[in-house]
Amino acid sequence: MQRMGMMIGLVPEKIAEYKELHAAVWPRVLATLSAANVKNYTIFLREPESLLFGYWEYHGEDFEADMRMIAADPETQRWWTFCEPCQVPLASRAEGEHWAMMENVFHMD
């Protein structure tokens, strides 16, 4: 299992919209994440900075293939058209990243 942490900014005027979207995530989007071996996915909001911190666990064996499956899903792509206008990618993110991935430096079970 891999633990994943990531950050992104949130447009302050779109916080309510983003919360509303995530109060009722589309079932097909959730099913696609589950099929791609993503579990325990949680998003936290830090205000007043308007930062999102995402955490999830990957329980599969082919991370790249599972991420391609998520990206290829038409319903997930449509979901992103609602979420992405709310988000502000961090300037320090790596090339090709939307959410900036974070290094796991400590974990306690």
Rank of each mutant, 00 (worst) to 15 (best):
Q2S: 09
Q2D: 09
M4T: 12
G5P: 05
M6F: 10
M6T: 03
M7R: 11
G9W: 06
V11S: 12
P12L: 13
Y18A: 13
L21W: 09
L21Q: 10
H22P: 14
H22M: 12
A23I: 07
A23F: 10
A24E: 11
P27T: 14
P27N: 05
R28V: 10
R28L: 08
T32Q: 05
V38L: 11
N40G: 12
T42F: 06
T42K: 12
I43R: 02
I43H: 02
F44I: 03
L45T: 02
E49G: 01
E49A: 02
S50D: 05
S50G: 08
L52Y: 00
L52V: 01
F53D: 01
F53S: 00
Y55L: 03
W56C: 01
E57T: 06
H59N: 05
H59E: 04
G60M: 12
E61T: 14
D62K: 04
D62F: 03
F63E: 14
E64W: 06
R68Q: 15
M69R: 15
D73A: 05
E75N: 04
T76E: 08
Q77K: 13
W79V: 10
F82P: 06
F82R: 15
C83M: 15
E84R: 13
Q87G: 12
Q87C: 14
Q87R: 11
V88K: 07
A91T: 09
A91Y: 01
R93V: 00
A94K: 12
E95A: 09
G96N: 07
W99V: 00
A100E: 11
M102A: 07
M102P: 00
E103C: 00
N104A: 11
F106Q: 05
F106S: 06
H107Q: 13
M108E: 03
M108T: 02
